[in-house]
Design a protein around this nucleic acid. Structure first.
Lengths: 224, 224
DNA sequence: CGAAATCATGACGAATTCATGACAGGCCCG
DNA sequence: CGGGCCTGTCATGAATTCGTCATGATTTCG
C-alpha cells in the first residue's frame, strides 16, 4: 500500500485530507510541522509527501528543499491561494506539483498518481499475511496454501481478509455481516455457509479446522 | 542534441525564440498551430515543448492536454499576461512550468533545464518491465514478446503499463477506468473488452492467460 | 437423560460475473 | 473520399457464485 505523508498545520484540513486519502487506499502519516515531517520522512520514507506552504517555524518552501535534498520522493505542494508567486516558488524549491485549497480529493488523487507515474517508484513486493501453511495476499487478491494458489471467491476472500486483519480475535457473525456483506441485518447462517466453504478450500481437514475455528456462541476467528 | 518544439502562432516571436534557442544549442522545431504541433510531436517527439496559450483553433490549454495524453514530455506554457488564472489552468492542463511574455531567453533556458532535470531524474530509474516472455518499455512505448515487437494500441498500452506498474496487484475495473481512461464513471465492461484484445496480442493462449489474469469479483492483475 | 440451542453441510435456483463477437462512429492517411 | 484502424457499446451465452433452505450433527444446560 502506498504511504503518504501529510505535512499541514491546520488540524481540520490535515485530518480531513488523511481520511479522504485513506478512503482512496493510501496509508497516511501526519505531521503538523515541517520539523516533524522531516523527521518522520527520514525515519520511514513515504511514497508521496504533501506539504502545506504556510507552516509555522520552517516554512513549506524550505521544507520542500530539505526533502528534496534527502531524496527524490514525489512532493506535492498545497497552496492556500492560487498565487502565482507561491506556486512558482514551490516548484522551484523542488515540488513536483501543487494543489490549491480547498483541496479536491479527486484532483489530488489524480495528481498524486500522475506524479508517481513519472517517478515510477520501484514496485514493492505485495505484502502477505501468514497463518502457518496459509498465506493471504490482500493486494494480489490471492490465497496460497503450501505455496500453491487456492481458488477463492470474492466473498470468501473478503471474509478471510477480515478475519486475517483481526488475527486471533473472535468476530461475531453480526460483525462479519456488517463488514464483509455490508448488511446491517441478515441471516447469520449465511456466515456459517461461507465459513464452511472456505474451510473446504483452506483447511487440511475441514471437519477439524486448525486456522478458521468456531468459537461457539460467539463467532469465528482465524489463528496461526 | 536536445530537440525543442515551439508552438506559437506569432511569427516574429516564434522565429526569435527559435533563433535564441538554437544559440543555446537546441535543435528547434516550429509549429504555428496546435494542430500542426501535435502532429509534429506525434511524428517525431521533441524533448521539450513550448506552447503559447493563445492559439488559433485548438487553444494552448487543449493542446497541452493532448500532448500530456500522448506522453510525459516536459511542457512549458507561454502566457501572454501574468494572469493567475491562465497560469493555473495551464499547469492544471498538464504543463510543467510556464513563462510570461516577453520571454527572457535566459530564464526560459533555466526553466527548461529545471523541468527536464525533474522529469529525467524521475524517469531514468525505469528499466523495462519484464513478465516472463513479455517485456514492456514504458519510455519507448513498446511491448516485446519473445523479444519480438508486438503492435498494441495506445489504450492497450496504457492499460498494460498501469497493470505492470502494479505488478502482482489486483486493480479493479473502477481503478483502471479512472487511471487509464480518466473516467470517474463508466461502463466497466469496457475494461473487459480491452483486456480481451490485449490478451489476443500478448498471451500465448488468450483463453487461458498466464500473465494478464482475471481475479473474479475483484479485477485484473498482471503477473510474472 | 432429553430438550433446546448452536453449528455444519449438501442441494438448488437465481443472480452475478466474464469472455467474446458484432457493429457503428471517429480519426487518420493515402 | 474511401479504406483501415481504433474505440466504445451492446448482446449473447457460458461459467461461476450467492443466498436460502432443509437436514443432521454437536454442544449446552436444565
Amino acid at each position: 500500500m502506498a504511504a503518504v505523508l501529510v505535512i499541514e498545520d491546520d488540524d481540520r484540513i490535515r485530518l480531513s485530507l488523511a481520511l479522504a486519502l485513506e478512503d482512496e487506499g493510501y496509508a497516511v502519516r501526519e505531521a503538523p510541522t515541517a520539523e516533524e515531517g522531516l523527521i518522520a520522512q527520514r525515519r520511514e520514507p513515504a511514497d508521496t509527501v504533501l506539504v502545506d506552504l504556510m507552516l509555522p517555524g520552517i516554512d513549506g518552501f524550505e521544507c520542500i528543499r530539505e526533502l528534496r535534498r534527502d531524496g527524490d520522493v514525489p512532493i506535492i505542494a498545497i497552496s492556500a491561494r492560487s498565487d502565482t508567486h507561491d506556486i512558482v516558488a514551490a516548484l522551484e524549491a523542488g515540488a513536483d506539483d501543487y494543489v490549491v485549497k480547498p483541496v479536491e480529493v479527486k484532483e489530488l488523487s489524480a495528481r498524486m498518481r500522475a506524479v508517481r507515474r513519472r517517478t515510477r517508484t520501484a514496485a514493492s513486493p505485495v505484502s502477505a499475511l501468514v497463518f502457518g501453511e496459509l498465506e493471504i495476499r490482500p493486494e494480489a487478491g490471492e490465497v496460497l496454501r503450501h505455496g500453491e494458489p487456492v481458488a477463492v471467491t470474492r466473498t470468501e476472500f473478503r471474509l478471510l481478509c477480515e478475519l486475517a486483519d483481526h488475527a486471533g480475535r473472535v468476530l461475531s457473525r453480526q460483525q462479519l455481516l456488517e463488514r464483509v456483506w455490508e448488511y446491517s441485518i441478515g441471516d447469520e447462517r449465511l456466515v456459517d455457509v461461507h465459513v464452511g466453504r472456505l474451510r473446504q478450500k483452506i483447511e487440511d481437514n475441514p471437519a477439524a479446522p486448525r486456522h478458521l475455528v468456531t468459537v461457539r456462541g460467539l463467532g469465528y476467528k482465524l489463528q496461526r
